[in-house]
Measured scan of single mutants.
Amino acid sequence: TTYKLIANGKTLKGETTTEAVDAETAERVFKEYAKKNGVDGEWTYDDATKTFTVTE
């Protein structure tokens, strides 16, 4: 399944996707990606669109 991340960070803005077996796995991947890019904010997830959003 393809999951999408929308990053609304102070230093990183944009979108990326990952293939994962479930939302929990995708969330781990995206949180690691955000951490590597210095983004720390509020996370939301929309199951209907398989989209995570992080906003600083």
Rank of each mutant, 00 (worst) to 15 (best):
T1R: 10
T1K: 12
T1Y: 14
T1E: 11
T2I: 14
T2E: 08
Y3I: 02
K4D: 02
K4V: 10
L5M: 08
L5Y: 03
I6T: 05
I6L: 07
N8H: 13
N8F: 14
G9E: 04
G9A: 13
G9L: 14
G9C: 15
G9F: 11
K10T: 13
K10A: 12
T11K: 12
T11G: 11
L12M: 13
L12C: 14
L12W: 15
K13E: 08
K13D: 06
K13M: 12
G14A: 13
E15S: 09
E15N: 07
T16A: 10
T16W: 15
T17R: 08
T18K: 04
T18V: 15
T18E: 04
T18Y: 12
T18G: 03
E19F: 15
E19P: 04
E19S: 10
A20K: 02
A20I: 02
V21T: 12
V21A: 14
D22Y: 03
A23F: 14
E24M: 11
E24A: 14
E24P: 09
E24K: 13
T25F: 06
T25I: 07
T25Y: 07
A26Y: 00
E27L: 15
E27P: 00
E27A: 11
R28T: 08
R28W: 07
R28G: 06
V29W: 14
V29D: 05
F30I: 01
F30H: 01
F30G: 00
F30D: 00
K31T: 04
K31V: 06
E32P: 01
E32F: 05
Y33W: 15
Y33D: 02
A34H: 02
K35Y: 10
K36L: 13
K36N: 12
N37H: 15
N37G: 05
N37Y: 14
N37I: 14
G38V: 03
G38F: 06
G38T: 03
G38D: 06
D40L: 12
D40W: 14
G41D: 01
G41E: 01
E42N: 10
W43Q: 01
T44I: 08
Y45H: 01
Y45N: 00
Y45I: 01
D46R: 03
D47Q: 09
D47M: 08
D47A: 14
A48V: 12
T49G: 04
T49Q: 06
T49E: 05
T49L: 08
K50Y: 07
K50M: 06
K50W: 04
T51Y: 02
F52M: 01
F52L: 01
V54Y: 03
T55L: 07
T55Y: 09
E56C: 07
E56D: 09
